[in-house]
């Protein structure tokens, strides 16, 4: 198991370095950072001086090493658009995105798994068929369209929920939270549903097909023959054996949630990282884009690692294999 973790860790570092290299190339070779910093009337000598001072005349490997070092400590330079430090810009907006993603993920998993179990256990019931048909629509429609429909219905027609912003937030140090005020919680509802709906339908369909598969196996028949209660069979035997693919997909989808927050945040004018990223793309603001890319890939890699480790928790066979593999060494 240790060897497995180390191998995964090496892979993760590899991916991060590759992304870091892309971010670095963008940063260094697309658009001249000097041009973005100085005025038009700066002389060539002054530019060279600045270039030397910033270390931009060093060899590329050295510059790359410095870039990675700076990135690891959160220094990404200045935004071309607002001239603020990029690290601070992103940090200010990080809580909004993470809280939204967390709510969306809880919504997707908390509702997706039970609905999937239900439709998997009673595939012929009309509610299951209806859910299955509706989920097809949920999977086909683009996120932003669902958000707009929700706004039209709940904010414009019924006027019960806010259509934009985070509501009132509470500050904890640098973290701002919308979890502790009424308006903050109300503001979270529509964006979370919008962001989580795709993942909800995906998880529901996956759990359903896995349940259908498992319910056909012999060990379920034997469990029935042993006279176990339906509850014990459904949850103790069937659901547990569907969890490995479900965890894989769910984990990957958590990363997708953070990325798709870009769209949801734009629909609901949610002051998060995604909105910042879209603004920086519209403006061609490379430092912000590079920093966002690195941060998001860091999240992705961490999530993937956690997913891999969860396999050991869920699947006892893997633990045995891991032990056997470790024993051989």
């Amino acid at each position: 198991m240790i060897a497995f973790i180390l191998r995964r860790l090496a892979q993760a570092v590899g991916v991060l370095l590759a992304v870091g290299f892309i971010a670095f190339s963008l940063f260094t070779y697309i658009g001249d950072p000097i041009n973005a910093m100085v005025g038009q009337d700066t002389s060539m000598e002054d530019r060279e001086e600045l270039r030397r001072k910033l270390g931009l005349d060093d060899s590329p490997p050295l510059q790359f090493a410095r870039f990675i070092g700076n990135a690891a400590s959160g220094r990404f330079g200045l935004s071309y658009r607002t001239s603020d430090p990029v690290g601070r810009l992103i940090l200010e907006r990080l809580p909004a995105t993470l809280e939204l993603s967390l709510c969306a993920a809880i919504f997707a998993v908390g509702l997706g798994v039970p609905l999937g179990v239900y439709t998997g256990l009673y595939p012929r019931h009309w509610t299951s068929r209806a859910l299955q048909a509706v989920s097809l629509i949920g999977i086909s429609l683009p996120t932003f369209l669902i958000g707009i429909m929700l706004i039209l219905f709940f904010a414009v027609i019924l006027n019960v929920l806010p259509s934009f912003g985070r509501g009132d937030t509470v500050k904890f140090g640098w973290w701002t939270s919308g979890f502790f005020t009424w308006s903050g919680l109300k503001a979270l509802i529509l964006p979370s549903i919008t962001l989580g709906l795709f993942q909800l339908t995906l998880i529901m369909r996956l759990v359903r097909s896995e349940m259908l598969e498992v319910m056909r196996t012999d060990y379920i028949k034997f469990a029935r023959a042993r006279g176990l209660s339906n509850r014990a069979i459904n949850f103790g035997h069937a659901l547990k054996n569907t969890l490995v693919p479900v965890i894989t997909i769910t984990g990957l989808q958590l990363g997708a949630i953070i990325a798709f927050a870009i769209v949801t945040e734009t629909v609901f004018a949610w002051p998060g990282m995604g909105q910042l990223f879209v603004q920086s793309v519209q403006f061609g603001d490379i430092p912000v884009m590079a920093a966002y890319l690195l941060l998001v890939s860091f999240f992705f890699v961490v999530i993937n690692m956690i997913v891999d480790l969860l396999y050991f928790v869920v699947d006892p066979r893997l633990r045995g294999m891991g032990a056997a593999a470790a024993g051989r060494h």
Binding site: L26, G31, A259, F260, I262, V281, G284, D285, N304
Partner: peptide, 17 residues
């Protein structure tokens, strides 16, 4: 590792830069 939309956004942003 990344959703397609993020990649497309990034490429578009670089072109704009």
């Amino acid at each position: 590792t990344f959703p397609a939309i993020l990649i497309a956004l990034l490429i578009d942003g670089v072109v704009r830069g």
